[in-house]
Amino acid sequence: MISAVESVDDAVLGFLDKGHTREDFLRVVKTFSELGMTLHPTFVPFTPWTTVDGYLDLLRVIEQQGVIENVAPIQLGIRLLIPAGSRMLELEEVRRLVGPFDPRSLPYPWKNADPRMDALSETVQEIAAAAERQKESRPATFERIWRAAHAAAGLSAPKISPTHTIPGWRSVSQRTLVLLCRADPDQLVSIGAQKPLVKNGRRKR
């Protein structure tokens, strides 16, 4: 089961108007663990509001909740995509942040106020792409991202605890069915192969 968590920072979740909080996500993780079900959270870690501390916090949450195996590495390198017509542009703060619309690449370009974050997003995307080519395990890739993020913060990376794995969580396997359905008028449910909606390392909002 996949859920677009996007962030564990309540301020960022507010900007994204996601309708959930950090605590909501942690509650769902706990519920899934108790039920022995597998949740694959997806994220948009790099936003104009992401700080280096916030990014490290996301990595720590993933580690401490025991979901490293459940997060595709590219999910840790995705930048917020602001296309033409995005509701994000209704926010004055976003309009002040973005540059002129680029008709070639389509989104409105933006840069983080902290240049370390834009550099880190590129580094994480490169790590994820290399890991995909080399079929590297998710824990090994996570550790490389973990080190890169701590290096960006000027910190030495603490060792990742191998004990942070919740019993009952299962790693990713190939999916076979592509199906869309609306199970409830108020509950859009999409069922399909696990292919992140990513283009050039960015997810469309």
Binding site: M1, S3, G19, T31, R170, D186, I191, A193
Partner: peptide, 27 residues
């Protein structure tokens, strides 16, 4: 088997239905 994408707020709203999703042989 299949993947399903559900919003966090809906996972909480329909929390009581989750055990029905964990039906045997369905990943």
């Amino acid at each position: 088997t299949y993947d399903v994408t559900i919003k966090i707020e809906h996972l909480l709203k329909f929390e009581k239905q989750l055990p029905r999703s964990a039906i045997p042989a369905v990943s």
